[in-house]
């Protein structure tokens, strides 16, 4: 028990060290936390109803009453941006979680079993990677049906190869280590060895991988909804808000697309920075 505690306090001191040497990462982590809080309590604190239109208040400039202005239907952009947080983060986190667990399972099986299983899983992932991933996601959404759930599915599928390959490589290395051999000699079953000896060792690096991936997942999902897939109006979502605001560029109503776009940028930026920070913490050698 005591060793666990020191390991934990060591981790914390490392975390403090990184936080202090890299204020930017620390700041990003704080903003991220704020975004998560916003995703949870956003609807409670948003000043207006995000879908209530008001013909008298269309395309208002940012002001005290509407800090981000209003859109062409008179909806408050700030409220819409706040409401959208839940959906945008939800899609990304959901998609990454799905590919994380399926990828972990597939990769572990492939890396541990080797042989045909490995070849088949590897080929499958190669085939996914043979597509430009965003294009594949478009195809998947078009095929499965144009809704939010399928956006998540598509994003999960195009992320899957990264996790599978990563888990496979790690498992392959670890399963050859002596203590795993010893466990095998000791008559432990494959599932047991995977669950107790291998998976716990690759989880930290996988989590780093996931956090590095979240920003990219957000970008993909937002891209899909930008071209009109998945999210339907009037649902507030950052990607679709940017695309709804885009036509007003030609009449100078920049706030219609700039604020939702910035929300996207900030979220992705923070996920990337925090992912980098986590990687430095857990796997310092992988740094580039």
């Amino acid at each position: 028990m005591s060793t666990k505690k020191t390991a934990f306090s060591e981790f914390m001191s490392d975390a403090r060290y990184i936080a202090s040497t890299n204020k930017l990462t620390f700041g990003a982590a704080l903003i991220l936390l704020a975004l998560v809080v916003l995703a949870v309590i956003g609807p409670a604190i948003a000043p207006y109803d995000p879908i209530a239109t008001d013909a008298a208040k269309t395309l208002l400039k940012p002001s005290w009453a509407h800090p981000f202005g209003t859109d062409a239907l008179g909806r408050d952009i700030l409220s819409r941006v706040i409401y959208a947080t839940r959906l945008d983060l939800g899609i990304a986190v959901g998609a990454v979680a799905v590919s994380f667990f399926i990828g972990l399972a597939l990769g572990s099986i492939a890396g541990y079993a080797g042989g045909w299983t490995d070849t088949i899983i590897g080929r499958l992932m190669d085939t996914i990677m043979a597509f430009p991933l965003f294009v594949l996601a478009m195809g998947i959404v078009a095929a499965l049906g144009n809704n939010v759930f399928n956006i998540m599915v598509a994003t999960a599928i195009i992320n899957l190869p990264f996790y599978t390959r990563f888990a496979r490589a790690e498992v392959n290395v670890i399963s050859k280590l002596t203590y795993v051999e010893a466990a095998r000699m000791g008559g432990n079953g494959s599932v047991r060895i995977l669950a107790t000896h291998i998976t716990p060792n690759i989880l930290p690096k996988m989590v780093v991988q996931a956090s590095l991936n979240l920003g990219w997942a957000i970008l993909n999902a937002a891209g899909l909804s930008f071209i009109g897939l998945g999210v339907r109006p009037p649902t507030p979502e950052w990607g679709i808000m940017v695309s709804e605001g885009a036509p007003y560029i030609f009449s100078g109503e920049w706030w219609t697309f700039v604020f939702p776009g910035l929300a996207l940028v900030i979220a992705v930026f923070c996920f990337n920075l925090v992912g980098d920070g986590l990687r430095d913490l857990i796997d310092p050698r992988a740094r580039t």
Partner: peptide, 22 residues
Amino acid sequence: VTVGAAFPTFFVALILIFVFYY
């Protein structure tokens, strides 16, 4: 590198249009 990776292509496109065209 960090900022470039965080900007969605479509958003960059719109900003460029706004600044350089409008």
